[in-house]
Design a protein around this nucleic acid. Structure first.
Lengths: 67, 67
DNA sequence: ACATCATGTCAAATATGTTTGACATTTATA
DNA sequence: TATAAATGTCAAACATATTTGACATGATGT
């Protein structure tokens, strides 16, 4: 699973901390997801998409396989 | 978080068990998600969408709030 | 009535996602 | 160069998702 959160976030000129607050999660969570430590929950994926003005399908790309 | 899995699955005429196998999860997982016991992981959401010929954004609707 | 398939549900175990607090490093900017 | 802001990372605790095995119910067809 890939995501373009870092790019979309920088386009919007918000910090990880600001995006975290907008999504109601911790800064570490945003950081971990941007650096592919793990995938967000579905709810968080929707909140990220919403706060970055994108759809979930635009923000994430699922590479058929398993990860 | 709402989903139209049950409807989309019936349109495709597949059982919970068949959909579960297509997605690589257990039948109970499909059943629980259809009945809103919990939300799927992001990966599973993408697999469900793929196997039901829909996008994640079509299959799930996020109601702003938290759930 | 019987057999079969599909669905709903439970509990316990395991896996994955998230939080908090802390500290190091890098990147700005005064 | 010094200081603050932003990012990367770790460990331990906690929350949520998923599995397995089991059993009950509902629907279908024979």
């Amino acid at each position: 699973m890939e995501n373009i959160i870092k790019r979309a976030r920088k386009d919007k000129k918000v910090s990880q901390d600001e995006l975290a607050k907008l999504c109601g999660v911790s800064r570490q969570t945003i950081n971990a997801i941007e650096n592919n430590k793990y995938d967000p929950s579905l709810v968080l994926a929707f909140q990220l998409a919403k706060n970055l003005s994108l759809t979930v399908d635009e923000l994430f790309t699922f590479n058929g396989g398993d990860k």
